[in-house]
Design a protein around this nucleic acid. Structure first.
Lengths: 159, 159
DNA sequence: AAAATAAATGCATAAATATGCAAAAAACAA
DNA sequence: TTGTTTTTTGCATATTTATGCATTTATTTT
C-alpha cells in the first residue's frame, strides 16, 4: 500500500523543513518518488493531526501535533540517548538494548512520541521490542528513531 | 480603536470554545458586539499566532499558540495561584500582591503567557505592577487573569 | 491645526484547502 | 478463487482562507 509510506514521508518532511502549502509538500513528496493529489494530502494531514500555524514572519507552516514535537525538546530525551546500547533487527522487528533497568523508561518515551511508523513497543528489563506498523520497513523505523532521538545511531557506533 | 478589543475577544473565544471556521468566529464576535470582515479576522489570527489544527474527530479547530496554551497546564501555575493575596487597581494599572518574596516568580509566569492585553509587568518583593496594553481596560485584564489563572478571583475572595 | 505618514479595514477576488461522489484498490469471507 | 465489503484515491468542485488595492481611520510631525 502506498498510504503508509506517504504518511511516513509526510511526517519526516514536515519535521525537517518549513512547508507552507500542501502544493509545496506535494512537490517534495514527488521528489521522493511519492505522488498523490492535493485532496489525498489534505486527508492525510488531518489524519496525522498536522496543523497549519503562523510562522511569525507573515506566512504559515505545517506543524506536527504537539505530542510529537514536544518529544524533540523533552528533557527525557537527553536521558534516553545515553542508555541505549544497541539496536538490532530480527524478523522485521526491531530490538533495542539498553543498560539494565532502563528498557521501560525508554519504551515509554518512544510510545510518547506517537510516531505513525511504530505500532507499539514491549519492554523487559534491558530489551525493547519495537513493532513497526504494517508496511513499515526497518529502515524506515531507523529513520524515525533518528528523528525522535537525534544522534542515536552515531552514538551507538562509538560503543 | 477597535482592533485591541477584537484581538482580546478572539483570544478569549478561542480559549473557551471550539471554533472551526473564521465565519463561525465572526458570528461569535458579532454576538459580543464586535464586527469586522473575514479578511480582517484572517489577518488578526495570523498576528495572534492562532493555528488551525485537526480536532481528532474529522474536523478542525483554531488553537492559541503553544506558549499561551501551555501556561494553562503549567505546573508553575499550580504554585502561583496560592501565593496571590490580592488584586487591586490604581490609575488604570493593576497591582497584584503576593506573599513575600513571590512577586518575581509570579510576574515571570504572567509574562510567559504572552497575553496580548498585558504590555508588561514590574515586580518587587511582594508586589507586581501589571501594565495593560494601550486601550485595554482593567476589566479586560481581570478576564485575562481568569483565563491564565483559572479560579484566581474566587480564591482571593475567600481570604 | 494642518499636513504627512502609518495603520487598519473592507471589498473583491485569488489562492489554498476540504469534501461529495464515483472509481479503483485492497482486505476479507465464503 | 470469486464475490463482498472496506479503504483509499482522484476528480471536480464547494468551502474556506489569504491578499492586492483603494479607502478610511488613527498617529505623528511641523
Amino acid at each position: 500500500m502506498q498510504k503508509t509510506k506517504r504518511l511516513l514521508a509526510i511526517e519526516t518532511i514536515i519535521s525537517e523543513e518549513k512547508i507552507s502549502t500542501q502544493e509545496e509538500l506535494l512537490r517534495k513528496l514527488k521528489g521522493k518518488g511519492i505522488s498523490c493529489t492535493q485532496a489525498t494530502l489534505s486527508r492525510n494531514l488531518r489524519q496525522l493531526g498536522v496543523g497549519r500555524i503562523p510562522n511569525g514572519i507573515g506566512g504559515y507552516k505545517y506543524s506536527l501535533p504537539e505530542k510529537i514535537r514536544s518529544s524533540e525538546k523533552s528533557p527525557l530525551r537527553l536521558n534516553i540517548v545515553p542508555v541505549i546500547q544497541d539496536i538490532v533487527e530480527a524478523n522485521g522487528l526491531m530490538v533495542i538494548k539498553t543498560i539494565p533497568g532502563n528498557a521501560s523508561n525508554t519504551a515509554f518515551f518512544i510510545d510518547g512520541t506517537a510516531r505513525y511508523e511504530i505500532a507499539g513497543t514491549i519492554a523487559g528489563d534491558d530489551t525493547i521490542l519495537v513493532i513497526p506498523r504494517d508496511g513499515v520497513t526497518i529502515q524506515q523505523v531507523h529513520t524515525c528513531l533518528e528523528i525522535i532521538l537525534p544522534g542515536i545511531h552515531e552514538q551507538i557506533k562509538k560503543k
